[in-house]
């Protein structure tokens, strides 16, 4: 199933290299302020970069919510510093802890992560801490997929909104970068994201 995706970029230069290697789907790359004039309603998912301008996202929050209400999926990377949807709260960094405590836990199995283990996410080249070091606190009813540390604070969560649409949040460095830190073996994981998002999309083709 071919999906249509919008990547909301806020950085100089080209798109994340890994996303140019995704096959079978169409990904449109736009600088963030230019996405305002686009019709989002035909995208299976809109991907928000960790470098997004969250002041601007607040300004266009009605557009984000209308897109979600129409059955869309928002995939949000990074730390929420200025909550731009009612479902989001400000990022809470973990207390400073030793790297050995930055263990990623799989709280619930999910098809998005069927190609990679929590152990592998914990240690990138044997180093802990890249994947997540705190939480964008999830709303009540969200499915927590990954948590971090002794307190199991949510790093990755998926929320099906009662009003329609769904929000996936990764509380850390851009997924398309962190999954590629060990090289090309990250690609099938990323491909799996796009396949699943398109297969389960509620956006009318």
């Amino acid at each position: 199933m071919t999906g249509r995706f919008l990547y909301v970029q806020n950085a100089y230069g080209g798109p994340p290299p890994a996303l140019t290697k995704v096959s079978g789907h169409t990904i449109h790359f736009y600088q963030q302020y230019d996405t305002e004039r686009l019709d989002w309603s035909t995208y299976d998912a809109v991907l928000i970069s960790m470098s997004a301008d969250q002041v601007h996202l607040n300004e266009i929050s009605p557009k984000l919510q209308a897109y979600l209400n129409g059955g869309g999926t928002l995939l949000i990377n990074g730390h929420v510093a200025r909550p731009f949807l009612p479902e989001l709260s400000r990022y809470e960094p973990m207390e400073k802890r030793g790297l050995k405590e930055l263990v990623i836990h799989r709280e619930n199995e999910h098809p998005l992560f069927q190609h990679i283990s929590a152990e592998s996410l914990t240690l990138r080249k044997g180093v802990a801490g890249f994947y997540g070091r705190g939480t964008n606190p999830p709303p009540t009813g969200a499915l927590v997929i990954h948590s971090v540390g002794p307190d199991h604070v949510a790093v990755d969560w998926l929320y099906d909104r009662p009003e329609g649409g769904r929000i996936f949040v990764h509380s850390g460095v851009e997924l398309w970068a962190v999954l590629m830190l060990e090289g090309p073996q990250g690609l099938p994981v990323i491909q799996g994201f796009f396949d699943w998002l398109s297969q389960t999309s509620k956006v009318a083709a």
């Binding site: 806020n10 470098s51 997004a52 969250q54 601007h56 990074g78 730390h79 929420v80 510093a81 200025r82």
Partner: peptide, 10 residues
């Protein structure tokens, strides 16, 4: 300058 990025704000 604040570009709106979370790491600027924080």
């Amino acid at each position: 300058i604040d570009g709106g990025q979370h790491y600027h704000h924080d």
